[in-house]
Design a binder for these strands. Structure first.
Lengths: 112, 112
DNA sequence: GCGATACTTAGGCACATACCTAATTATTCT
DNA sequence: AGAATAATTAGGTATGTGCCTAAGTATCGC
């Protein structure tokens, strides 16, 4: 039961950094190897690696190494825990907001 | 345009802390005054105030002072930006599911 | 085998964050 | 007015985070 909280905490902490969020955004499109992920950033490789480790510890991404190349992927359902929490927060206030016609961008998916 | 990113960044950073998240959870139920919010925590008041300031800067909450009492409320739609981002990160599989009208809401992600 | 490639490990520095106590301000109560 | 209450400001510490360089390990291609 407190597992959910820990999971959520790790996920939010991981996503609180712009670099890591950018990595997640990139991986949402498709898996990529470490050097691919590193390319867009003007950051030393070990620094990026550290971010990748954080993402992996938060179980947002997984990786597997083939030869000397490590491929990272976004874990399917990795963000579910966040969705769940968000859902819980839209209790009375959200309902009120809905009533008042204040926009609540619910689970309306976007096309890319 | 980069406003969205900044906003998202502030929100995620604010939510990355368990104390602040607990405050948000509390405020999702109803507005509350500072001392009410502080009560559940074994934390000095100024420490909690700092968290409240972070939440306010992230525009997750608003406050107004009447006399010597400050009442904090969750800003309606405060979490929309997160919802929006989350929607964008849905994996290709999720996009497909959306198209098909399958709702992939998580309940309890347990097993690995 | 040998150099190039793709990470990985180790160690270190600077600044941010989360907490504290003590003192202050501004209201409200008696 | 004077004491109690609610919040705020000021200032300090300890740990965490994000970044770096330098050096190491393990493959791959010739």
């Amino acid at each position: 039961m407190p597992k959910y909280r820990d999971e959520l905490d790790a996920v939010l902490r991981a996503l609180a950094d712009p670099t890591r969020r950018a990595v997640v955004e990139r991986l949402a499109k498709s898996p990529a190897v470490v050097s691919e992920l590193a390319a867009p950033f003007s950051m030393a490789l070990p620094s990026l690696m550290q971010h990748l480790r954080v993402l992996e510890n938060a179980r947002l991404v997984t990786s597997q190494k083939h030869g000397r190349v490590r491929t990272m992927s976004l874990r399917p359902g990795a963000l579910d825990v966040l969705h769940l929490w968000l859902g819980e927060q839209r209790t009375p206030a959200a309902h009120q907001a809905d009533r008042l016609g204040i926009h609540m961008t619910c689970t309306t998916p976007k096309e890319t």
